[in-house]
């Protein structure tokens, strides 16, 4: 099987600090990591490769420093990686990003599956995965929580489309839906699907020795007008800082003698706001 995982490098935001004056994120000293939700996509891809053979290729679009994300993916067990980097890609929104990644995936060709994380932890849009499927006209399953069955025809000359398929479950609001879809297909995963592995020592060695050559629109056929800011329908017009604190009432009930009063005050609050 040939599996492709588009990934994104994001700032490590578990301890995000904001510049109070400008309302922008303080990036100094903030480490860049693979989008945590992409790790589940990488793991799902590697597990399928281990079962069925083949290769996993990680793809990312970003500045040259995003090479680190590709190397980390290889250290986890991906076989190869492609870094899309160039000025023409700068300022891309989800539409232009999905276009660029879909062109790269099309250029790789002959793939069976594409695994994406549900969304990235910086933008949280969940739009690029479905966008890639739309560009490539691939069957799409989002919010996938488990892979039930992958069927690959033994006889590769037999091209009946029903022979190559995947069965999976999607986690929806009301429960789990099971889909059966032909390959190639694109899948976005939620974290229930697996436990991502850590990079191994030999994986790290392999990653270190691997050359990740950046590619751009000179190497892959792309329409210039669909790239970067120029190709992006949306524009950010304003960034605001939301009010962080509500200035709610704090009741110190650490002393046992205060507990009853505190509980009563809470019940009064719930009653006053018609919450009971």
């Amino acid at each position: 099987m040939k599996i492709i995982t588009p990934i994104k490098q994001v700032p490590e935001t578990s301890n995000v600090k904001m510049d109070e004056e400008t309302g922008t994120m303080v990036r100094d000293g903030v480490e860049s990591i693979i989008n945590p939700l992409d790790l589940y996509a990488i793991e799902a891809a590697i597990e399928l490769k281990e079962e069925h053979g083949g290769e996993v290729i990680a793809v990312t679009m970003g500045p040259p420093s995003a090479e680190k994300a590709i190397k980390e993916a290889i250290a986890m067990g991906c076989d190869d990686g492609i870094l899309l980097s160039g000025r023409e890609f700068a300022g891309a929104d989800t539409w232009a990003t999905a276009y660029t990644l879909s062109r790269c995936i099309d250029d790789i060709g002959d793939y069976d599956l594409i695994f994406c994380g549900l969304q990235a932890t910086d933008g949280d849009t969940a739009q690029v995965g479905p966008g890639i499927a739309s560009f490539l006209d691939l069957p799409l399953a989002t919010y996938v929580s488990s892979i039930e069955d992958v069927h690959i025809a033994d006889d590769t000359t037999y091209t009946e489309p029903d022979e190559n398929y995947i069965e999976l479950e999607r986690l929806l609001e009301e429960g789990y839906e099971k889909l059966r879809m032909p390959l190639p297909a694109l899948i976005t995963v939620v974290k229930e699907i697996n436990f991502p592995r850590l990079p191994t020592l030999s994986g790290k060695r392999k990653a270190r020795d691997k050359d990740v050559t950046p590619k751009n629109s000179e190497h892959i056929e792309m329409k210039e007008e669909y790239l970067g800011l120029q190709g992006s329908p949306t524009r950010v017009v304003n960034i605001d800082r939301p009010k962080v604190t509500r200035g709610g009432k704090m009741i110190d009930a650490r002393d046992e003698s205060k507990q009853e009063e505190a509980v009563e005050e809470l019940i009064n609050y719930l009653n006053a706001n018609e919450l009971l």
Binding site: G248, M250, D252, A253
Partner: peptide, 27 residues
């Protein structure tokens, strides 16, 4: 969590929560 709370109880939750549940049961 207290920064976003409208009302916050600081204290031992293992004691407070059963007390609250008892009151809610009464309500």
């Amino acid at each position: 969590i207290f920064k976003v709370a409208d009302i916050g109880l600081i204290g031992n939750l293992f004691e407070l929560v059963p007390m609250i549940n008892e009151r809610l049961a009464q309500e």
